[in-house]
Each structure stands twice: as C-alpha cells, then as structure tokens.
C-alpha cells in the first residue's frame, strides 16, 4: 500500500518523460499498432483457410509455435539481429505473437460451423463469398472475438516485457524500477499493467455483447 502511495503520489511520475499518462499512451499506441496489423493479417487469412480448408497446417504450426516460443528470447534475438533504435524491430515480434490467437480462432470458427448451415446456405443459392460472410462469419464471430481478445492480451503483456529491449510504455516502470531497485516503481507499474489488461478484457466482453447476434450467443 505504501508503495502505491509512494508511486502514484510522486510528482516524478506525473510530468516529463516518465509521466504515467504518457507511458500509458505509448503502451496503447504500440499495442494497438501491433494488434491492428496482426488482425489485418490474421482475420483474412483465417477466413480464407477456414473456408477453403487449404493451408490448415499453417494454423496448427503457428498455434504451437506461439505457445512454445519464449517471448523474451524472441524479443532480444530479433532486436539484436535487426538493430536497436527504431520501433520496428520490437514491433515485429509483437505482431508475430499477436497473429496466432486470431488466426487459430478465426479458422476454428469458420471450420467448426455447422455443416448443415453451410449446406443449406449453398443450397439456397448463396455464392461462395456470400456463404462465408452471411452465414459462416456471423456464427464464427464469438470465436473470432475470443481470438482478438487473447491476442490483445498477448500484445499488452508482450509490450510490457519489450520495455527490456528499449520499448516505451508501462513496462518501463517495471524494468527501470528493477534496475534501480526502486520497488515502489516496479509495483506501481505492475498495477498499471494489470489495470490495463483488465480494461482490455472488459472492452472485448462488452464488444461481443454488442456485435454478436443474440441468436448465436445463446447457442454457445
């Protein structure tokens, strides 16, 4: 508790480079950038693979790789290889880790749709893309949103770790605090990261309430 008062009460964390609002904005900016790029890649790819059934191996491999690869190792290796300085070397592993959850769940959502639904849709004369977008996508939406949520959470967490290789954002408090044995700063930063993760979680829960059809929500 004392640490929290020490951290949030200190003027040091409200002005200048280390100001909490600034760090939060940085964190949001990097996270959103990586997340958006990952979604732009993974959703179309997942829809395509799920609908055509071709390339399922990519999905399986990416899911396993994302789970097994150590985040920190990947970050330091990529940044060392490409070079420190700009944002991209850090964004690349962030994006790479954000893709699999979306890809896997989009694929599973389309693939796992009721075969009778697919059959009925084609049987009524919907064309391939209409079957995908009008019948399968709405039914897969809960899973796609789950994938997006898991991905967003991964990005927030990985962006925190990425402070170690020089990325700004809330992870800075933890990494800098550890380096200087300023545990109030570590603790305060960790609390901020937890709050951010919870906010992301809540955002996606609300989002799925709004955009998933009640007819589909009940089924699952």
């Amino acid at each position: 508790m004392n640490w929290l008062i020490e951290f949030f009460g200190s003027a040091e964390y409200w002005t200048g480079d280390d100001a909490i609002p600034l760090r939060l904005l940085q964190h949001l900016e990097y996270s959103f950038l990586a997340f958006a790029i990952a979604a732009l890649v993974a959703i179309p790819l997942g829809l395509l693979i799920g609908h055509t059934g071709r390339g399922a191996v990519i999905v399986v491999v990416s899911a396993n790789a994302a789970r097994a690869l150590p985040t920190l190792g990947l970050l330091v290796l990529v940044v060392l290889l490409i070079g420190v300085g700009t944002l991209w070397p850090v964004l690349i592993p962030l994006i790479a880790l954000a893709i699999p959850p979306i890809l896997v769940n989009t694929y599973e959502g389309i693939r796992g749709a009721d075969p009778d639904l697919r059959d009925a849709a084609y049987g009524m004369g919907l064309r391939g893309s209409q079957v995908l977008f009008r019948a399968l996508l709405p039914v897969a939406l809960p899973l796609i949103l789950l994938g997006l949520r898991l991905s967003a959470i991964t990005v927030v967490a990985t962006a925190t770790v990425a402070a170690y290789v020089g990325l700004g954002g809330l992870g800075r408090y933890i990494i800098d605090g550890l380096a200087t044995k300023n545990y109030a700063e570590v603790f305060g930063g960790a609390v901020l990261v937890v709050l951010l993760a919870l906010a992301v979680q809540t955002l996606f829960t609300l989002l799925s309430r709004v955009i998933v059809s009640p007819g589909v929500r009940q089924v699952r």
Partner: peptide, 18 residues
C-alpha cells in the same frame, strides 16, 4: 480464470516480489 489468464506474467511477478 479468464481474468487471471489475462494478467501479464511480468506484472504478476512484480506484484508478488513484495
């Protein structure tokens, strides 16, 4: 469990440090 799963590991480590 969903909420727990969403918490970044580094943040949890840092909080437990105390």
């Amino acid at each position: 469990m969903n909420v727990v799963y969403s918490l970044p590991s580094l943040a949890l480590f840092s909080i437990l440090l105390s």
